[in-house]
């Protein structure tokens, strides 16, 4: 005897399968996915690919500002460290911060979005207002202000993750709110209410699963924003000074007079890494949108 739960799960599995079928056919999406898998592998396998000692100032043995060569494929920086090592290890922090901040952003955004769409009256109104306010406030000045407010004892990397998470949830919230509002109209939700389903039941059993596809598409786009944000914040000097990230490499390069010395490799390779990863996330996001939105699919 199939329970309602298992029926729902079976339906979802079928939907997931169909989704994957659609995604597989999308060239852009596949390409993006492959790039992401490569970067994820590099980040996870960092200790195997490059010696951690290569990041240490005291142990650096390479020539200063050497252009790319066989020994140093990405060249060296002004302290003699291999830029390749820095980019490999930097991927860990850049990706970690991006993903962690995205989790925070998505959680807040989804909760606020569903809440403001579902609850009528004061609660929903407040959440909706909050979303509008955060949408309007320009993100970088807010991030800068928040980053400076954090007490120095908090490890900077945590501070950066929280700052990015807290400043980027509003776009997600607005989208989810709109979706929630349209779901609210649907008949089965009325039925659930009539049967005595409480708020939490409605939100978790009915609204959330229907909002999930949108959340998924939005997540990839949020990750790309988060990684860009981390890179910019590190470049401005607000990142963690003790951990290598791609933004930190660029900050070192800028302060280390990369422009005068013409050491293009020092800025180009970490920059390319950022652009490639962000673009890959964007490509996946657009592909997911296409798969989910039948209208766009027709046009593809």
């Amino acid at each position: 005897m199939k329970t309602a739960r298992s029926i729902a799960w079976a339906r979802r599995r079928v939907a997931l399968g169909a989704f994957w079928q659609g995604y597989r056919r999308d060239r852009e999406g596949l390409f993006g996915l492959v790039v992401l898998v490569v970067f994820a592998t590099v980040a996870i396998a960092a200790p195997l690919l490059a010696d951690a000692e290569g990041l240490s100032l005291t142990k650096a043995t390479g020539p200063r500002l050497a252009p790319p060569s066989l020994a140093y494929p990405f060249g060296t920086d002004e302290d003699g460290r291999s830029v390749l090592t820095e980019v490999i290890w930097g991927s860990r922090i850049s990706l970690l911060v991006g993903l962690a901040a995205t989790v925070i952003s998505m959680v807040i955004g989804t909760l606020v979005g569903i809440g403001s769409g579902h609850f009528r009256g004061f609660g929903g109104g407040v959440l909706g207002r909050l979303t509008e306010w955060f949408l309007v406030i320009p993100y970088l000045p807010l991030a800068i202000v928040l980053a400076t407010v954090f007490p120095p004892d908090v490890p900077r990397i945590i501070a950066v993750i929280i700052v990015i998470g807290v400043t980027s949830w509003s776009g997600t919230a607005r989208l989810i709110r709109a979706q929630t509002l349209s779901i609210e109209e649907r008949p089965y939700l009325e039925r659930a209410r009539a049967l005595g389903g409480g708020h939490w039941h409605q939100m978790s059993r009915h609204i959330l699963p229907n909002v999930m596809p949108l959340v998924l598409a939005n997540t990839t786009l949020t990750v790309s924003i988060a990684i860009l944000a981390e890179t910019t914040l590190s470049f401005l000097g607000l990142g963690d000074p003790l951990r290598m990230s791609w933004g930190k490499i660029l900050d070192n390069a800028y302060s280390g007079d990369v422009i005068t010395s013409g050491a293009w490799w020092w800025a180009l390779f970490p920059g390319l890494a950022v652009v490639l990863v962000v673009r890959a996330f964007n490509m996946c996001g657009r592909a997911i949108e296409r798969v989910l939105d039948p209208r766009l699919r027709e046009l593809a």
Binding site: G256, D257, V258, T260
Partner: peptide, 28 residues
């Protein structure tokens, strides 16, 4: 605000003297 444009300006003659530049710019 930074060493790089300062050194560049000295090279092009936009300024005639620079002070308190960093070691790497100095060496260049």
């Amino acid at each position: 605000a930074d060493d790089a444009p300062l050194a560049q300006a000295l090279r092009t003659g936009e300024v005639h003297m620079v002070n308190d530049i960093s070691a790497s710019v100095f060496e260049s």
